Amino acid sequence: MILVLRALGVGDLATAVPALRALRAGHPGEELVLAAPAWLGPLVELVGGVDRLLPTDDLGPPPWPVPPSAGRSSHGAPPWSGPAPEVAVNLHGRGPRSHLMLAGAGRLVAFRCPPAGHADGPDWDDDEHEVDRWCRLLDWYGIPADRTDLALRRPPPGRLPAGVTVVHPGSKVEAKRWPADRFAVLARRLADRGHRVVVTGSAGERELAARVAAGAGLPPSAVLAGRTDLGELAALVAAARLVVSGDTGVGHLATAYRVPSVLLFGPVPPARWGPPADRPWHRVLWAAGEDCAAAPGVGTASGWAALPVDRVLAAVDEAEETVRV
């Protein structure tokens, strides 16, 4: 068994797709098991090649306690039961806790972490792109990975409309949220241009999505936040005309399905989490970058809020023009 730990969110899973595909190709006869939250199951199916999802929900949010098998006093446990895996791959972090969660496996593929007793592996680089990070890790262990292999399987058409423009104002990280009133103005102006706008989000973001839709003059039926599971959200994005979102999972779905997108980055540079730079139909605006260099307070909350709607609309035009050419 090859056990891979990636117990995070949508964007984290999407950026790990090339590494997961490389592990599948490098171990064709082995069972490939992904330790991740159960709610990611529909997206894991769209990655393909994963034989089994091992839910990490009972572990609680990281950082996790160190398991007794790692030689520390703790009430934790490894994310598997029964025989230890032949190979464990840490696509979760640099350690030591995530490394020690996998202690007991026959072999650990992970970044170098002497505090966890793991002197093997390459050194961590804070500044590299998340996709490149995990491809480099596997390359170091002799498993070639293709960083361009980002596509997800296309879900079958469902109950949701096709050809819509997806506006996603939320993020689990508050600092990554462009102001809701600006999203509302943007959605209204997109609708005035003939876009069929829907507003997505998690169940916890339904009030935010409703506020954006109301400010845009959209009907309540345009609010899909909390009304889709992850598989339905992927299907919605796969068949969309356009996606506008912050630095969050929906943007990675647009990348996976090659759907034109405008992604708004605030505190985190797109060089670490953005779409491939060679795809002009994905446009990135970074509040700390040159696109907003004239805005006051760049790099701060006020600079993030100062990202103008007109600049976002211009990026929409640029993204859609690449599709028409």
Rank of each mutant, 00 (worst) to 15 (best):
A38H: 13
R21M: 09
G29E: 11
V268P: 00
V250P: 05
V4R: 06
L233M: 15
M1P: 12
F183S: 03
V87P: 11
D146H: 12
A103G: 11
A7D: 04
L108K: 06
A287H: 03
Y257E: 02
G117L: 12
P65F: 08
V89G: 12
A238C: 10
R153K: 13
G95A: 13
P280Q: 11
L263Y: 00
R283Q: 14
D181M: 00
L242R: 03
P68T: 03
V164H: 09
R182I: 00
R97V: 05
D57C: 11
S81E: 12
A225C: 07
A225K: 01
R272A: 05
G49E: 07
A180E: 06
S171P: 03
P179N: 02
D127E: 14
H282R: 09
G41I: 02
D149N: 12
G204P: 00
G170N: 01
L100T: 03
P260L: 12
A70P: 09
K172Q: 02
Y141H: 10
A295R: 15
L54I: 03
W286G: 04
D291M: 01
P220Y: 09
M101V: 05
V323F: 01
G303Y: 08
E290Q: 06
C292Y: 04
A306F: 12
L8K: 14
D192I: 02
A103S: 15
G217K: 08
V50C: 07
A225D: 01
G163Q: 06
L186V: 06
G249C: 07
A105K: 13
R24Q: 09
R94H: 15
G163T: 15
L100R: 08
W39G: 05
V109L: 15
L46P: 09
L137D: 00
R311M: 13
V4D: 06
P83A: 13
L152N: 06
R258E: 06
R193C: 06
E232Q: 14
R112S: 14
L233P: 08
D146L: 15
V66R: 09
P155S: 10
G11T: 02
H168N: 08
D139T: 10
A209H: 05
A315W: 12
L160T: 14
S73Y: 07
G71D: 05
A234Y: 13
A277G: 15
G274R: 05
A214K: 03
T148H: 14
H92Y: 15
A288E: 10
